[in-house]
Write a protein that binds this DNA or RNA. Structure first.
Length: 289
DNA sequence: CCCCGAACCTGTATGC
DNA sequence: TGCATACAGGTTCGGG
């Protein structure tokens, strides 16, 4: 489900919904949601603290906590495939897919719902250590064209798996990687180091453009899984140019959109707008299928 | 460094 | 209708 535009939409709403609320309790309904942390450790870290600011890096949400005037750590959350947050008044009936319920001010609940159970929510006294392995977030400085181009030149990997690698850039997932490559006119199998300075610039611009456009629509929804904390779906799915459009006409040139599996992920591209790289420009791996 | 397959999970769509 | 299979916005691990 959620990539940078969806997570940023969630962050903005949680920032409004949670600011100032005091955590008065927590009930865990699926242990692994805490990612190895004990329920006791989560409760000790969070109970009695109040929310200050909601931040984000890549697809990670950081819900900052204070006790009085003192920093008290963060609730670090990753929605993975199907995680959702929302706030409801108490009392409420526990839902089938509710994995963690955090009580707010004794009157409300912050619910983490997650059908596939891949999502993670845990308390960290120091978020820096967890985020240290992540690359730059395109919507948070610094993400300069210059540095991005320079880091591309050092990698032989194909663009698709490289852009999905959160230690290279944080926030792109399967949808926005394919959408950015199409907008940049670059084939997903192109080796990163084969890009000219102009092509690297196009890719940098395309990433920013597609992420901002998706964010302005509240992200993308095409099933019941992604909803904002206020309960709304995104609307950017109507503007996909390649993702999921196998067999349909390219919106730019009318060629038939192709699909193949690359790096275990479905990959969509336009054979006209994104020409097949010459052997020299291709990375080692190829398509499966 | 890079690639692959498997694992973690449940729901939905599709085919027989 | 039932059953089997494939696939899904993500990440991590072990092995080659």
């Amino acid at each position: 489900m959620p990539e940078l535009p969806e997570v940023e939409t969630v962050r903005r709403q949680l920032d409004e919904l949670l600011r100032g609320r005091v955590i008065t309790g927590a009930a865990i309904h699926w242990r692994r949601t805490l990612g190895g942390q004990t329920p006791k450790a989560f409760a000790l870290g969070t109970r009695g603290a109040h929310f200050t600011e909601a931040k984000r890096h890549g697809k990670n949400l950081l819900l900052h906590l204070q006790r009085g005037q003192a920093e008290a750590g963060v609730i670090l959350a990753h929605l993975r495939m199907t995680g959702r947050f929302f706030v409801e008044p108490l009392p409420r009936i526990l839902g089938k897919w509710d994995r963690l319920v955090i009580e707010l001010d004794r009157t409300h609940a912050l619910v983490f719902l997650d059908v596939r159970k891949f999502g993670r929510v845990h308390f960290e006294s120091d978020a820096q250590t967890v985020l240290s392995g992540l690359g730059p977030d395109p919507l948070l400085s610094p993400f300069s064209c210059r540095n991005f181009a320079a880091s591309l030149m050092q990698r032989r990997r194909a663009l698709k798996p490289l852009l999905l690698d959160q230690s290279f850039v944080a926030g792109l997932g399967n949808i926005y990687t394919d959408e950015a490559l199409h907008r940049a006119g670059l084939h997903p199998l192109r080796s990163a180091m084969s890009l000219s300075a102009t092509e690297a610039g196009s890719l940098h611009a395309a990433i920013l453009r597609v992420l901002k456009a998706a964010l302005s629509k509240g992200g993308s929804s095409f099933d019941q899984f992604y909803r904002t904390p206020e309960g709304n779906p995104g609307a950017f799915q109507d503007e996909f140019r390649v993702y999921g459009r196998h067999g349909k006409a390219c919106r730019a040139c009318a060629s038939t959109i192709q699909r193949a599996v690359l790096g275990q992920r479905g990959t969509w591209w336009c054979p006209q707008c994104q020409p097949t790289p010459a052997r020299r420009q291709r990375s080692g791996a190829g398509f499966k299928d």
